[in-house]
Each structure stands twice: as C-alpha cells, then as structure tokens.
Amino acid sequence: MAGTGVSGPLAVDTRSIPEMVLAAAEAALADAQTDFGNIDAVVTASVDLHDGLTASNIAVTEVVGAVMKPETRIAGDGLAAAAHAACQIWAGAYGTVLVVAHGKASMADQDSVEQWAWDPITIQPLGVGFTVAAGLQARAVMGEGDPEAALSRWATVASRRWQAVGVGSRPEDVLASPVTAAPLRALMAAPAADAAYAVVLTGEPQRRGPVLKGVGYDLDTHAPGDRDLASWAGLGRAFARACRVAGSDTGAAFDIVEASCRYPHEEELVAAAVPALADSDVAPSGGLYRGVAPVAAGLGRLVDTVDALRSGPPARALAHGTWGPAGQAHAVAILESAP
C-alpha cells in the first residue's frame, strides 16, 4: 500500500464527481510520493444508476490519469476494486495500480435507486429499498431474544460510533429517534454521504506502507427469503478466502479492524461470521458513521486501516466492505505493517 487519498465524506458535496475523484487521486499520489506517470493501470468502482450516467467510468477516465492506459471498472464496492487491483499485481500484469471509488448519495433518492437492484417480478412491485432489507435483517438478528435488550444494546453501539465521529447522540436519543424500518431507528443508521477514495497499490517494496497480504470476496443469494438473514455467511466465506490468499490462520486475531457496518446489528453479524473478530472493536475510527458513500465506503475502510497501521506499532489489520441489500456482498482485505 503505497498511498491513500480521501475526498469527503460530506453530507452534500457540491462539487462534480470528476472533481471529487481528482482530489482523492491527487492526494493518494502525493501520499505515495509518485505521479500519474508511474501508474500502469487504474481500477475504478462506480454504478451507472447511482451516477445517472451510462458507462459511468468514462466520466472519470481523464481525472484518474487513465488516458491511453488500461482501466477496469468494478460495479461494486471500492474494496472489491482494490482486491481486483491486487490480483492484477500478483498476476504480474502491472507494477503499480491506482484504485479509485466514488459515491454521491446526494445525487438521488437512494431507496429509488436501490429498488432497481431487486427482481422485477417478485420484489420491485413491493417498492422496498435496502433500508427495509436492513430492518428485516435486524429483526432476524433479534430472533427470539428480548427485543428491549437488543434495542438498548444497539443504541449504545450507535451512540459510541456517533461519539467517535464527534456527534453527541446519546443512547436515549438513538432510541427516541423515529422508526425507519422496525426495529431500526433513524439514529441507528450511519448517514449517507458523498465521498471519493483512492489508494495506490504497488508491487515495489515500500518502506512506510503496510503490506496487503490477502483479499477475498463473496456474494450471498439475492432474494432475502432465500438466505439466512440472521447471518453474514458471505463475509465468513470472503474472510476464509482472504486468509487462504494471505496464508494465515482463520483463527488468528487482528489488532486493527475497520468493518463496514451501517447499523449496530451488523457489528453482531460481523462477530458471528468471523470468530477471530469477536473481541475486536470493528470500527475504532467511528467507521461508516462519518458517512456512507455508495460503493465507495469499503475503500474508505481500507484507507483508515492503512492510516492506523502507519501510525501505530507493528500490527495485523482487516478492512471490510459490503454492498447490496442486507450485506449480500462482502469484500475483505488483510494487511500487515511494513516489515
């Protein structure tokens, strides 16, 4: 990991997508003490329906410096784009790859965009977005247990995350906020945001940068009724893959974890899917509560992980990204401090 760059997150970024992306890309290159001329290939993450543009990557081709270079677009979370870039480097295809992801939630009503990911015969006519899927999942996680206890637990977690990002919502504020999709309350959810993230990956040895040891990703079945909603089994499988690539034991503990949890119940899903994380704080930075940029947030988790590894003692870290309804898709990256 040679460099990272961030633009946002902001609740509303009045700049255009190319300007947000350019800011993040330039920051990552500066951090890596390199320039566009040393980039062999670019991987971008974007989704046409989020951006309201067909072939949404071509709007950023220039600002990511991909003119007359290879560019790959991933229509999924930016952490998956980073995984793709890592594979390109491991395969020997390219030496240094720039990865950029952007998401601009303020551009459109997210529920109406997300509806279009559902099956048109069985689910779309219900008019539900991913918030409803999250509500169904929270209910499934609650299971037969005491609803009040779960709500109180989640309100405490949400409050802690809000405090970490400088918002003073107390557990009682969270519980008192409006119900969005029962049992979820408005203040349980991390807020939608606009952001762009960039990382420079290289096969060259780095003095400073942590080493990306393994990546993995996995998708669960699509229809909520076809999956066990009370489990992020896909995360477990993605994690096992990343461990296999890293050559590490799935039971080995992590010093730093940055998971993409938009709701408190998702932190419980992480702990259940990856026992090695059961005792970890999965969002020490406040995680997504600073703002969730669609299909970019996971790359933001990777950026936070890299920053934490660089500033602390030698450590082992995990970054996680998710996209789709109720955590249908997961990407995992395993990192270690530079030797």
Binding site: L49, C87, A117, L219, Q328
Partner: peptide, 14 residues
C-alpha cells in the same frame, strides 16, 4: 436493472 452481479450471484477475482 442495477447491480447485476448481485442477483446473478457471483463473486469475482482475477
């Protein structure tokens, strides 16, 4: 349709 890889059910690696 949006996000086709979700409903065709596929992960991806190179």
């Amino acid at each position: 349709r949006a996000l086709p890889e979700l409903w065709v059910g596929a992960g991806a690696l190179a």
